[in-house]
Design a protein around this nucleic acid. Structure first.
Lengths: 199, 199
DNA sequence: CACATTCCTTAGCGAACGCTATAAAATGAG
DNA sequence: CTCATTTTATAGCGTTCGCTAAGGAATGTG
């Protein structure tokens, strides 16, 4: 068999995640990537294809790790209210964790794109739309189960909490602390529909 | 006297605003700027200095025009509640207006920055901080005037509404309509402190 | 050992980046 | 008109961009 690669592919991918997370897709150069990953360009291209495919893989990895808390909360909590509240709280802590770049990679990493990388922009937009619809679906479940009033505006609430999360991401990048973000999360819960039996 | 310039400086600046607004600072090339402004690079550099100074001037112009509604609402409305509610509503309409790029230039135009344009990032961050503090100050005024409870968390509320606005900007860029953004604005007002005499 | 295969390093490709030297064209002053 | 001044268009500067050809270095197989 041939010569094995001299670097840890997963570890290198993690470095790439951090670079893309902090500077976004276009502002991250292949030179900065190779420097952060500790490899030379040909190794990067042999292992990951090109910059675009490396970004896709970085986003996929981000979603399986740092960005997994949303799907987890929506799946595990017994009510939509608890689920959304937990999503907001975990986002507050995660987005401001000094152990990694601030904010959410999916929210911000493809914001300033030239016409040549419109596909990347669309790709992350779709992921945001998916997250929003996951919240909407979770709310609809509770409406169907009678835990929320029949006339509940699930779409509107989903959009509101998606906006709250995205706003928290922006504030985290502006230096907000976990405490400040948790306060935002708390205030956002005031928009939750009031139910007779505390949904 | 010498030969006058053959193009309208203000009109050219408006085109630059639109370019930076839509693609952000780094993703907007001098070539795309000159194409949009209808001039050649030497004219751009003679009239505006360099790309960085042109961006600064574009941001200043944006704030005096499309971005002026926040300061206006905070100054003109009789109560902090009405002021914040109007800011959110006008943001909803403005951010989704198809006559210009979606979202807020100050929120998004310097999101994906390499290390060489960190100053631009800081510059817009300061403007966002200033807007947030303007909301906080308006709320404090109402607390001092007795229109809001003495224990009101002005800082927390200001951060929450700033996050709401920034989240609305993101959603507008993702294609949200004015109607959807107005619903977000409406839900956000549920976080407003309750007062005995409807502050 | 020799061999086939794959990875690594060096070096550099063409294109686009921000920016500018140069000189012709266009103006008002005299 | 001539002249001084400024703007204009052409062309291209040096650098960085994403990406890759070429060949030596390192592995498992026989």
């Amino acid at each position: 068999m041939p010569r094995p690669r001299a670097f840890d592919r997963d570890a290198a991918l993690d470095r790439a995640v951090t670079e893309f997370w902090r500077h976004g897709y276009e502002a991250t150069s292949v030179a900065s990537l190779t420097a952060a990953m500790g490899i030379r360009p040909p190794s990067l291209y042999a292992a990951f294809g090109d910059k675009r495919r490396l970004f896709d893989e970085a986003v996929a990895r981000y979603q399986r790790t740092h960005g997994a808390f949303t799907a987890r909360a929506l799946a595990e909590e017994p009510t939509a209210r608890r689920a959304v509240e937990r999503v907001l709280r975990e986002a507050a802590v995660e987005y401001s964790d000094p152990a990694h770049p601030p904010g959410c990679m999916v929210v911000s990493a493809a914001t300033n794109c030239g016409p040549e990388s419109a596909e990347v922009e669309t790709s992350l937009r779709d992921l945001r739309e998916r997250s929003k619809q996951a919240i909407v679906s979770r709310i609809r479940e509770d409406v169907a189960a009678g835990r929320l009033p029949p006339g509940t505006d699930a779409e509107g609430l989903g959009a509101f909490y998606a906006a709250t999360i995205q706003g928290m991401s922006r504030q985290a990048q502006d230096g907000a602390t976990a405490k400040e973000l948790l306060r935002i999360a708390e205030l956002a819960m005031a928009a939750w529909p009031t139910t007779s039996d505390q949904g």
